[in-house]
């Protein structure tokens, strides 16, 4: 009991969020799988940041003299059918992957938060309507719905990102709503209401910050699916278009030469697998680090 005042005093000296983030990171690093996930993601970010330095070749320049070369000292992962260096293309492809992750997160997070908190806060008819809408989107497998959107919008990387975002928000909204329902009747919300705070203000100032941690975790967990969907769209020719070095699209073009030149499909595939595995391991670790029941709810 004596330690309690000490604990709160120390917590007050640092922003609350930072302390708990630090604690979560420490927890994650203690478990080998989630530590692996963190390391892979750190490498991915570094790779994207320093892509021009890390790449040994220009990812777009064709060299028809040396097509379909097996991996060697000159080309770490070999070359493709147009003589482009696969290693350099994968390195530059990490930028595309990160862009997808980043854009989808900043689109999906706010949409999901907005719909979820509004539905949860107002309840009643608003809730019913918004949750029905969410259910309709949830009643499709996300890849099929993305496919339909991309088909309508036309195949391109941007449209793929839009399509994925349009299909990825419902689980976030569900989660934010569930969280909001637990806070809605809390005394401090009532207190804010008695002081005359508007609903918008209460949602923005009191409810959104409370939902944020679990929404972030859920986003992390969903990133593996987002990456696989994006790669799948790229593979089907509906995502990033050639000559962009998107990993899924690279596999699609490499497919024709697969039997004789295994390296064309192997390395981009390993890259996708590693990144999505990293997100899954990280999400799994986060789930353990925080209350498992809470995160499992959709």
């Amino acid at each position: 009991m004596v330690t309690l005042p000490l604990g709160t005093a120390r917590r007050r000296s640092l922003p609350h969020g930072l302390v708990s983030l630090g604690r979560i990171a420490a927890f994650l690093f203690r478990a080998p799988p989630s530590a692996f996930g963190l390391v892979v993601l750190a490498l991915l970010i570094l790779m994207a940041a320093f892509a021009p330095l890390l790449a040994t070749h220009d990812p777009y320049v064709q060299d028809l003299q040396s097509t379909l070369q097996p991996p060697s000292g000159a080309h770490f992962f070999g070359t493709d059918e147009l003589g482009r260096d696969i290693y350099s293309r994968i390195v530059h492809g990490s930028r595309i992957t990160l862009t997808i992750i980043f854009v989808v997160s900043i689109v999906v997070g706010p949409i999901g938060l907005f719909i979820g908190t509004v539905a949860g806060y107002y309840g009643g008819r608003v809730d019913t309507v918004l949750m029905r809408l969410t259910d309709i989107f949830l009643s499709f497998p996300s890849l099929i719905l993305s496919l339909a959107f991309v088909a309508a919008l036309g195949p391109s990387l941007n449209n793929a990102i839009i399509a994925i975002s349009l299909t990825a928000w419902p689980p976030i909204a569900r989660l934010a709503r569930a969280e909001t329902m637990t806070f809605r009747s809390a005394d401090y919300i009532a207190a804010a209401r008695l002081q005359g705070a508007s609903s918008a203000r209460i949602i923005w100032k009191s409810i959104v910050p409370m939902c944020l941690p679990s929404v972030l975790i859920r986003l992390t967990l969903n990133m593996a699916t987002v990456i696989l969907t994006a790669a799948g769209l790229g593979f089907l020719g509906l995502g990033a278009q050639p000559p962009l070095p998107e990993w899924g699209a690279m596999i699609a073009t490499g497919r024709r030469y697969m039997i004789d030149s295994w390296w064309l499909v192997t390395f981009p595939g390993v890259a996708i697998l590693l990144v999505s595995l990293a997100f899954n391991l990280l999400g799994d670790g986060l789930r353990d680090a925080l209350d498992p029941k809470q995160i499992n709810k959709r």
Binding site: A231, R255, M258, L273
Partner: peptide
């Protein structure tokens, strides 16, 4: 988690190979 993370179109090709 591996099963959850693999891009199935890629695993399919590798398995065919």
């Amino acid at each position: 988690l591996m099963g959850h993370s693999m891009p199935i179109f890629w695993t399919g090709m590798i398995a065919l190979l």
